[in-house]
Design a protein around this nucleic acid. Structure first.
Length: 283
DNA sequence: ACCATTTGACCAAC
DNA sequence: GTTGGTCAAATGGT
């Protein structure tokens, strides 16, 4: 039998109200105009003869826009699935922008190819870079901890609140990559070659905030159980000397109070933040 | 029960 | 016939 009823002929009206999806990655050139168009060179014509351009990045998820995932497909001759997104304003504003994400390497950090199709017509304001950045007075990294954190800042949280209001005050869940959080490694781990190759220390004696331009994707966040939370985890980095912050059980960081999880292994420390609207966020 | 995500069917492009 | 893009039912989390 297997009579799987399926609505044919696209343009299915309202899919069930799905949430907006946004992820954070370090700002690259994504807030500006799209890079020059690159036509596919695999010989196969794209389904839609649309304007498209490719971008290779380690931070494929957040590009300042809100996307809704609508599909995933295993691709022949690729170890990684292809993920399909369209603009979250597809229904509201009939914005035809879409993108697909294809992981192309399994390095640290993994490299992704992102193919964008159609420009946004939704006129939605791009999500600004987070306002949580490293605090001032960065010391030399020599014997410090390397902190890594991913966050949406206040602007993004405000945007989410607005979106929740649009959706009849239905709260939106946070994905792990959206949580204000950070991990730390001991300097011992930091000096391992595999890490040092892509974690250049900040300039010694730097006294300004860690430049956003120097933010780079880092290792996937690991939970206490060793699970990879999300390879879309992107972070700013900064370093502090051990005595620069109090590394006991609480840290006041950029105005948010973090408490350390007691179940941590030798190198990976996980923290909970109690600074967002009084809620404690654990992951 | 509601909502977000996943999964597999359908169908267009090759 | 095969592969990839899209849709929506099924599934899972809260």
């Amino acid at each position: 039998m297997a009579s799987k009823m399926k609505q044919l002929n696209g343009q299915a009206g309202a899919t069930t109200g799905s949430a907006l999806v946004g992820y954070y990655s370090p700002p690259e050139d994504t807030f500006g105009p799209p890079p020059s168009e690159v036509s596919p060179h695999d010989g196969r014509k794209k389904r839609k003869d649309a304007l498209s351009w490719d971008k290779y990045t380690c931070a494929p998820y957040f590009d300042g826009r809100l996307w809704r995932k609508y599909g995933q497909k295993n691709i022949k001759n690729s170890h990684f699935p292809r993920l399909y997104f369209r603009c979250s304003y597809y229904e509201d504003k009939h914005c035809m922008a879409s993108k697909l994400i294809q992981q192309v390497s399994n390095d640290y950090p993994p490299l992704y190819k992102v193919t964008y199709m159609h420009e946004h017509t939704c006129n939605a304001a791009p999500i600004p870079a987070p306002d949580v950045v490293a605090e001032a007075e960065l010391p030399a990294v020599s014997d410090g901890f390397m902190l890594r954190f991913g966050s949406y800042g206040k602007d993004y949280r405000d945007a989410r609140m607005k979106q929740e209001q649009r959706q009849h005050n239905q709260p939106m869940s946070w994905s792990p990559s959206e949580l204000l959080s950070f991990d730390s490694w001991s300097s011992q781990l930091q000096h391992q070659p595999a890490l040092s190759s892509y974690v250049p220390p900040p300039a010694a004696g730097s006294s300004s905030s860690f430049p956003i331009a120097e933010s780079l994707p880092t290792l996937p966040a690991m939970s206490g159980e060793g699970d990879v939370l999300s390879t879309c985890w992107n972070s700013f980095r900064y370093s502090v000397e051990v005595d620069h912050l109090q590394f006991d059980n609480h840290v006041d960081f950029a105005g948010d109070m973090f408490s350390r999880d007691t179940n941590m292994d030798a190198h990976l420390h996980s923290w909970a933040c109690t600074g967002i609207e009084g809620e404690e966020i654990l992951f």
